[in-house]
Simulated scan of single mutants.
Amino acid sequence: MKIDLTGKTALVTGSTAGIGFAIARGLAKAGATTVVNGRDAARTEAAVAKLKGEAIGADVRGIAGDVGTAGGCDAITAALPLVDILVNNAGIFGPRDFFETPDEEWERFFAVNVMSGMRLSRAYLPGMRDKGWGRVLFLSSESGLNIPVEMIHYGVTKTADIALSRGLAKRMAGTGVTVNSILPGPTLSEGVAEMLAGEVEKTGKSIEDVAADFVKAHRSASIIQRAASVEEVANLCVYVASPQASATTGAALRIDGGVVDTIA
């Protein structure tokens, strides 16, 4: 299978590092004009330069803007009025006990993890509908199905992403536009590597081995018994964004290593 996204424009939010950057790289290598996004202008420019170096000849651009605010989303859509592929990847996470999580934290998580994708989808879906083709992806999480007790607020936002994605897929029925959610499990991104850095130093093990130990201890239902790579998550996203995935819509697509114990 050869995925060719030549002539398509893709926006990946929160793509200066981690899964977002890997998705942007995959889309760029498939020929899409790829727009990198981050809150900080300097980091966004650095990510664009890095991506151009890894996807030689690709058309790569950057738009800095905080998608966690209405103003930030408006600025992005003003600078980029139309896209063919929207990847709502930007998100935040972090453990905090339910009884110690104030309203402000719930609102912050909803603003970044849910409202950003809602606002950008509302802005870009009409243009996709008018062209008769488009792809919207929401980066949810296996935590949207398997709510983690240590960060209920995060899990609830990821459940909301799945529901929003399904609803929008139905709203776009028959238009040639697909909307899906992607549910990664434990993934060895830069953020996770940073979280595990102390254990790497302490044990002398590789980051991959330490991440596998973490998965076995904290996500013991994992079938692959290791963390996925950001490239493995990105590969699914690039396929779902492609013409080849035209019959896949309204789906919650798990790339969780089998963490969620279900056959459906």
Results as ranks from 00 to 15, higher is better:
residue 10 A to I: 10
residue 130 D to Y: 11
residue 238 V to F: 03
residue 124 Y to E: 06
residue 247 A to L: 12
residue 216 K to V: 14
residue 126 P to E: 00
residue 225 Q to D: 14
residue 7 G to F: 11
residue 82 L to N: 08
residue 197 A to G: 07
residue 179 V to R: 01
residue 26 G to N: 05
residue 133 W to P: 10
residue 240 V to L: 15
residue 121 S to P: 05
residue 46 A to S: 10
residue 80 L to F: 04
residue 6 T to P: 02
residue 166 R to G: 14
residue 8 K to W: 02
residue 118 M to S: 08
residue 192 V to W: 14
residue 229 S to K: 02
residue 152 I to A: 15
residue 263 I to R: 12
residue 120 L to D: 07
residue 97 D to Y: 12
residue 151 M to D: 04
residue 196 L to V: 10
residue 172 M to L: 15
residue 154 Y to I: 07
residue 212 A to N: 06
residue 167 G to K: 01
residue 225 Q to A: 14
residue 246 S to Q: 11
residue 102 P to E: 08
residue 206 S to P: 13
residue 34 T to P: 02
residue 22 A to P: 09
residue 221 A to H: 03
residue 154 Y to N: 06
residue 214 F to Y: 10
residue 161 D to F: 00
residue 158 K to Y: 11
residue 152 I to R: 12
residue 4 D to F: 07
residue 179 V to M: 07
residue 260 V to Y: 07
residue 106 W to G: 10
residue 93 F to C: 13
residue 22 A to H: 09
residue 252 A to K: 02
residue 4 D to R: 10
residue 128 M to F: 00
residue 147 I to P: 11
residue 182 I to P: 01
residue 183 L to E: 13
residue 213 D to G: 15
residue 15 S to W: 05
residue 61 R to D: 01
residue 196 L to T: 03
residue 80 L to Y: 00
residue 222 S to L: 04
residue 29 K to R: 15
residue 84 D to G: 13
residue 103 D to C: 12
residue 107 E to S: 09
residue 243 P to K: 09
residue 173 A to Q: 13
residue 93 F to N: 14
residue 55 A to M: 08
residue 101 T to I: 14
residue 89 N to W: 00
residue 198 G to S: 06
residue 95 P to E: 13
residue 83 V to D: 09
residue 20 G to E: 09
residue 144 G to A: 04
residue 14 G to E: 04
residue 224 I to Q: 02
residue 115 M to R: 11
residue 223 I to T: 10
residue 11 L to N: 07
residue 134 G to K: 00
residue 178 T to Q: 05
residue 195 M to W: 02
residue 250 G to K: 05
residue 114 V to F: 12
residue 260 V to F: 03
residue 211 A to D: 05
residue 250 G to C: 08
residue 85 I to T: 02
residue 33 T to N: 05
residue 222 S to K: 01
residue 264 A to M: 14
residue 261 D to S: 09
residue 183 L to A: 14
residue 69 T to K: 13
residue 146 N to E: 15
residue 193 A to V: 08
residue 94 G to D: 05
residue 155 G to E: 05
residue 182 I to H: 02
residue 76 I to Q: 02
residue 200 V to D: 03
residue 180 N to Y: 02
residue 139 L to K: 01
